[in-house]
Write a protein that binds this DNA or RNA. Sequence first.
DNA 1: CTGTTAGCGCGTTCAA
DNA 2: TTGAACGCGCTAACAG
Lengths: 359, 359
Amino acid sequence: MSTTPERKEVTIYDIAKALGISAATVSRGLKNHPAIKQSTKERIFEQAELMGYRFNTFARNLRMKRTHTIGVIVPRLNSMFMSDVLAGMEKVSNESGYELIISQSLESMEKETKNALTMFNSRVDGLLVSLAYDTTDIDHFKRFIDKNIPLIFFDRVFEHPNCPTIIINNFKAAYEMTCHLIDQGCRTIVHVTGSLKRNVYAMRLKGYKEALADRGIQFREDLLIVNDLSASDGIRTAEQILGMEEKPDGVFVTNDTCAISCMLELKRQGLSVPGDIAVAGFNNDPSATIVAPNLTTVEYRGHEMGKVAAKTLINLLDGKADQGTAATIVLRHQLITRESTKTRPRKNDLPGNDLKKQR
Amino acid sequence: MSTTPERKEVTIYDIAKALGISAATVSRGLKNHPAIKQSTKERIFEQAELMGYRFNTFARNLRMKRTHTIGVIVPRLNSMFMSDVLAGMEKVSNESGYELIISQSLESMEKETKNALTMFNSRVDGLLVSLAYDTTDIDHFKRFIDKNIPLIFFDRVFEHPNCPTIIINNFKAAYEMTCHLIDQGCRTIVHVTGSLKRNVYAMRLKGYKEALADRGIQFREDLLIVNDLSASDGIRTAEQILGMEEKPDGVFVTNDTCAISCMLELKRQGLSVPGDIAVAGFNNDPSATIVAPNLTTVEYRGHEMGKVAAKTLINLLDGKADQGTAATIVLRHQLITRESTKTRPRKNDLPGNDLKKQR
DNA sequence: CTGTTAGCGCGTTCAA
DNA sequence: TTGAACGCGCTAACAG
């Protein structure tokens, strides 16, 4: 069962010599080129197997000027959403013969810039990016665009004519969630969200505002909280809410991590959820069904987003799609209502009725 | 602000020509070779910058026979623990100038084998592996070992003289947890774990057994449940427990996902936790502090494990450590007791006292 | 159907 | 301190 450790790398020349044919023929045979006799192909494969031959990717890349490698830059690797995204990407690219080089910006534009340069230098065939929290422009991706290296943004995107984007309808999702809260009887709804530089948070805020407007509720600056949406931000948010003069009756947080820690802190301080205050999140993390009460949230499947992003890129790379069509792909989302917003028994008082009670 | 899109790749020849020197000099200059005059170096760097030169990694690799790339094969990307591990690996390798190629086996040995081959063909400099659920041997990694390509196992490891392993003391952790449950008054403790082919689960079972033995409690086959430790397995486990004639008073599940869903189902069926039955998990996932009651578990930080694994490999690759020293590195773990095991008020009845009551 | 030839871009002797 | 020349392994033209 013990193979002798191969000493030196076997090349197509070695196998050509062994077979008394030319290296070119071997190369073609290995690639299943149509213009090679079946019998020779078989001999080649057999000999290759026998000698323990393996492709030399470098040489191949050097010739082909392609790496079959896709770069991925994400804010963080360790979030449930992102690992779902990556799992989806890995699946698709692996099936299509591409490899993934993954790096994280840790929410810093500086690191994102460094990562982009590294990716550029390692000659990735294309790039999949979700932007860091504080990224203000995409000059650091300019080299890719200039060189026509496909660049696709997903989730946290930047609008650019050459770059396809994969997103969900964040506006609509937030609109629906806000309406849901209002329908449950909430009138004073706090909105907790992330950096408004990022489309996802900006659009969700917009959806929130528009829902309020449509239902005749005045938007109030003092009910808007912008932070990093971390678990500790959730606790701080709860404190802020408890400190407000007029007690809010709803909180809409734009991620589940923060929503859950906020909700738990509110409960710890004696509020009942959803009795005193309804809480809604975003993402549908597994924790949403673990916490009590279960969290109302927006389903937002990373796995699919990852698959679509990778697929879109690979189609571009393999010439199955046109560079010109830098489309925006909008994936489906879904409002999932759970106990954390199943509020007061007071029946659907028509929204219009108590408008004047607000503010 | 608009750079003209570079048309063709600039090489060291181009910059040599532009400077009226030879390509060899440029090559050396770029590498900061000591035998090059400072002034020439400066001219070279300047010109390189000017012309937008970038390394050609392929050519370099082709010459050097190194890729500065590390392969990673994990069971799944989308678990909190694993994404933590990857984040740690990414950090370390990025800082040391290595890139990560990541793939998942989806718990299947077949896919793991395919991934290993891909990694081999893309000439990774080294490999970091955590084994799939059903992997029975490591013949698919033999090529790496034969070729002296460093191969490091972490978490779910395989003992091999040439392969360093990074683990925690699973035996001790499980031993401690079992003792803790016993100290809390539990006498009939169900143990729920994963494939015993994997060291992590085998060792935990061993720790559980030894703790029972040391406290004079008889191990019972019928209290051992082996499954995939998924959330749905947790529910199934709860049903099994509820169906047992003699009701157990403790459950020790070897991951948090499964422990939590099991606990929630037990509660849903009317049991009180920890009143009727104590529940303990393993991993200290974020959910452990979200669920009610908070879950007692074993802290087991993936981030550190990822960093150590990557660091160990890179030291090997950079020649800072010897191939010969294929050590086993054991990371620290910590028992974290929370409400889910703070059991019955009945005071510490001395363990020895009611041994005979068992079975 | 197969062989010959000529690079891809870089690092490295060996000479100068 | 620098240059000339070669080769890493593969593929694409261009022959035959």
